[in-house]
Nucleic acid binder design. Structure first.
Lengths: 228, 228, 228, 228
DNA sequence: AATGAATGAGGATTCATTCAT
DNA sequence: TATGAATGAATCCTCATTCAT
């Protein structure tokens, strides 16, 4: 569904045309990005070939270069698009009127739902972008920071709402958020692999995890090697 | 420190020889694996070149092929070695005489310590191996399953010890372990990036996280969207 | 100054139009040739791209093809135009009423002045046209022959005027003229590079050169290896 | 004669081998340079293809890259080799024991002889190198400066020997030498094109030219527009 | 009169891999 | 045990040129 072959799109009224139809640039560009996300996501940056991408997009290679300049810049464009889509999905999944714990829950669910529905895009962000040098890495780091910040803030808010008081120390929350996001990413991969584990379940697991950890944190209960 | 240029290692008894000394196969193989881990870890599979690996190992390319057959099999060898090393580090870091929560704690610490000390090997296992087809992926999946099983078992034991009773449901623990490993991986990256956050702190954060989640799970306290 | 962007030329009466105005074919063609001369002159035939030329001319590529058919034929058109311009400049710089030595002098001056003012056109004629196959080479050969003939004739005339008699042998004069033109080309490059050497000076150097050689020729003084 | 196909060189004792024989690097490198000079000389830098060069050299393209790194650097190597060869030919053609006018004569003859015998190398130096950016241009500029300096010095010496006194002004001699070298280059092209004009004749023409111009210079006879 | 959309063909460069010694 | 010599097969990218409007 991500990728639509030009033949499908252009095959109007049984003309039997073999050449891809002329299409406005914006449409073609989207097709190319769709194809690129798919190939990059499955193969990784280096193993993906522009030939394959062009073919999947249903256009000739020069057109890909004409519109997207280079492999590197095509990859960056993929990252940017997928990162935005993910960020937006999370943002839109959250109703700001709800209490913080519900917001956290819904954010997690939106995250899992979106990554499950866009496994290639998610693979690009999660696995492949980190390998590349600056341009892409920066893009992804920004996304991750955005999400981490979002989570950090939710945790703080939830802590205040649930327990009153000033909330836990900045640093501790940062670690918690980091762990939470990492766990989410890992669970996303797990959930995507194992078809039977749905977004809801993953979100619930994580929420339990987070909620309890948070509660302990607030209550000052910390496990430490000496304690027992 | 991982990688030792052959010249250094082989310069015996001031012969003034410029060519790398003849060395027993085992030594040469280790040099090659060291080099390969470094290059694969930093560049990824596709972007790593056999030329670069051979040069870093201080030998000619044909020798690499003589000993390790192909790029693919060299990569697999790297994965196997690094996976074993990691598994062993975790196993050795744990004293079986201790109570379960201490064992969990020490396992986590060993994990973080080892990955921090072998970033290239860790990158291979964590980032690059997944991209490759079967041979490598299987290897890593085995490692991951091993660790997950180990953690699962520790959790079960800890739960029994701490709370009595039969322990939580298999499935829930699987999700928990998965999340825990993901969080650990994420924290490992965080800890490695941000120099000031040492293995200890990461382990502590995670332990708090896990412990509380676990307690809740045992006590039947679960967060659920309807609850509030 | 050679090249005028279409926007500047066509921006009439504040219409606010962004598209290049419709213009009579002759004007468009001149814009294209201006752009082509600039690009060809600076990059050489192969390294010049039709894209760049079209962009500099401020039109779309298909229009260039519509008016000038192909890269090859565009190049030929450039050569033709620049060759004519140079020939004309030399012809117009010479007053036929003057004695032959003055005519030669003025021809040289006109040559240096024109080439200095049209470095790109000169580069096309002098450097790039020779590399191409027949169509262009012939065009340039014609120019060169024209100039050489012009010079040959001047030399003959000057010889007659200065010394009386039938003038030197055809063949010798051909060599002399060839050398003179070559020297002129070389001096043109030198004069263009070293800003301080103006057309006048270059012409003077050459004139001295030629005049003396000519005198010797007439007087039958020839250097020969055996002579000393 | 410049280029030797590997088949010829390697076909020992009627083995009928079709694959090019293994050869020491130095030999292969020379073959590649021979081929490259030929192709670059005939087509120019851009129009020359590495494919064609490799084929003419009788090796595969990767080997060319292995030994000579890139098209650019192959081109530079050609320039360097041909420039050195030419400079050496001129240097070796001149007997330092002879008087200056004879030395000039012999230098010119050697120049014409060498360029006539190595038309492709000469084309590279004279026509194609100038088009390319720094690396090549610098190399050629150095050659040209070397030759110009050589000629300048000869002129000064000849002037002193022939006429006594301090010799003409630096600046005038520079112009003269520049013109002389340009004329020589032009005559070389002429001589090479028109088979019937041999090195001797070209050298003689030029020598007459130079000698007379020099005499005039020394005697203070200068043509000037006002003079007549 | 003018252009946005599109491509076939080719060119430089790299890489995993193999011989012959 | 070890290597210098060599290559088939991609891969990224560019360019002259055309078509449909």
């Amino acid at each position: 569904m991500d990728v639509v072959r030009a033949e499908d799109a252009g095959a109007a009224a049984g003309t039997g045309e073999r050449r891809p139809k002329r299409m406005p640039r914006a449409v073609r560009e989207r097709q190319m990005l769709d194809a690129a996300v798919r190939i990059f996501g499955r193969r990784g940056y280096r193993a993906a070939s522009m030939d394959e991408i062009a073919e999947l997009a249903g256009v000739s290679k020069p057109l890909v270069y004409l519109y997207l300049n280079s492999k590197e810049s095509l990859f960056t464009a993929c990252i940017r698009r997928e990162a935005q889509a993910l960020a937006e999905a999370v943002r839109e999944g959250v109703d700001p009127a709800l209490p913080a714990d519900r917001r956290l829950w819904e954010g997690l669910r939106a995250f899992f739902t979106h990554t499950a529905e866009h496994p290639d895009g998610w693979a690009i962000l999660h696995r492949h972008a980190r390998t590349r040098g600056e341009p892409s890495a920066a893009e992804v780091a920004a996304l991750r920071e955005g999400i981490t910040a979002f989570v950090t803030e939710l945790i703080q808010a939830a802590a205040r709402e649930a327990h009153g008081g000033p909330g836990p120390a900045e640093r501790e929350v940062a670690g918690l958020a980091q762990a939470l996001v990492g766990a989410a990413e890992s669970l996303a991969a797990w959930a995507n692999t194992d078809g039977s584990v749905a977004a809801n379940e993953a979100a619930a697991t994580l929420m339990n995890f987070a909620w309890a950890g948070l509660g302990n944190l607030m209550a000052g209960h910390r496990w430490s090697p000496a304690e027992r």
